[in-house]
Design a protein around this nucleic acid. Structure first.
Lengths: 146, 146
DNA sequence: TTTATATTAGATAATAATTATCCACAAAAA
DNA sequence: TTTTTGTGGATAATTATTATCTAATATAAA
């Protein structure tokens, strides 16, 4: 999570031009916890940037990923989601409403170390995904039955 | 992992017809540790079933997944991989040669319980993916440098 | 501020994995 | 054997993502 000034500086430093579209896309990702995919970002910006195309979203995401401003989340849907929180953390998806939430402050270090030792791989990263029904959807289901 | 007789019985029981193609596809998955995707299965069977189409692979996979004979693996590539081992286990992908290996007998139960408690989700499953360079590719890299 | 130039946004087409459709035909039941 | 229902394969459709092309724009230099 960076403010506009830092993002501007970082883009320049890495040799990318600073455009309103790029700042806007990063801004959307900073101001949501919904882990949007490309289309959701597109829809969010549509009112303010009516001429923006999906291609711009994808190209900008490539750049933001490259300079490590965002991370890509693959929760097994048909589209990818994006997150402005780059600190490694796990995600959980509700199998009913499909929302994706963060699982922060969860220490998987011992497990990771164990895997590294056991496999002799030179580990560079990992992704943990959990699936289940969120409390809200559980409540809804109970209301229907009750 | 089931033998042909059990698979036949299970398919019938679930209301699906038993065809050579279906048995062959399941058989391929039982006899490999490579976690093939649809195209790899297709290529493997091409010599023996020259008329088989990719659509058949996908339709069969749907069925095998539905009756819980295989699991689907999404390692963040552009295609999905399939595994005849349905017991929950983690996977690790080599970022150099792209092979996917199993991490069996690894107990994530404490972590899973902790997540369930912390999130109040009704958990139904989880997927752990690790990324890194496999020992073989490490050796190759060292040979080039040395 | 103006100019030069290299990069970008947006329109459009291309790609590629997966899914849907349709029908002759095969598997299971009668 | 006959009937019925589901299936395989050919084909087209779908959809997320990527590539291409050009006018427009950001940036650095004058």
């Amino acid at each position: 999570m960076m403010d506009a000034k830092k993002v501007t500086a970082l883009l320049r430093k890495k040799g990318f031009k600073v455009t309103p579209q790029r700042l806007a896309i990063y801004n959307v990702l900073c101001n949501t916890k919904a882990h949007p995919n490309a289309e959701m970002i597109f829809n969010k910006l549509q009112p303010y940037y009516p001429t923006m195309s999906l291609a711009t979203i994808y190209k900008t995401i490539d750049i933001l990923k490259e300079i490590n401003l965002i991370q890509i989340i693959n929760v097994g849907e048909d589209s990818l989601r994006y997150d402005a929180v780059v600190k490694s953390h796990s995600h959980i998806r509700c199998t009913v409403c499909n929302k994706v939430e963060d699982i922060m402050d969860f220490d998987f270090t011992p497990a990771i170390k164990d895997v590294a030792q056991r496999t002799s791989y030179d580990l560079s990263g990992q992704q943990f995904y959990f699936y289940g029904v969120c409390p809200e959807c559980q409540a809804k289901a109970n209301r229907k039955i009750g």
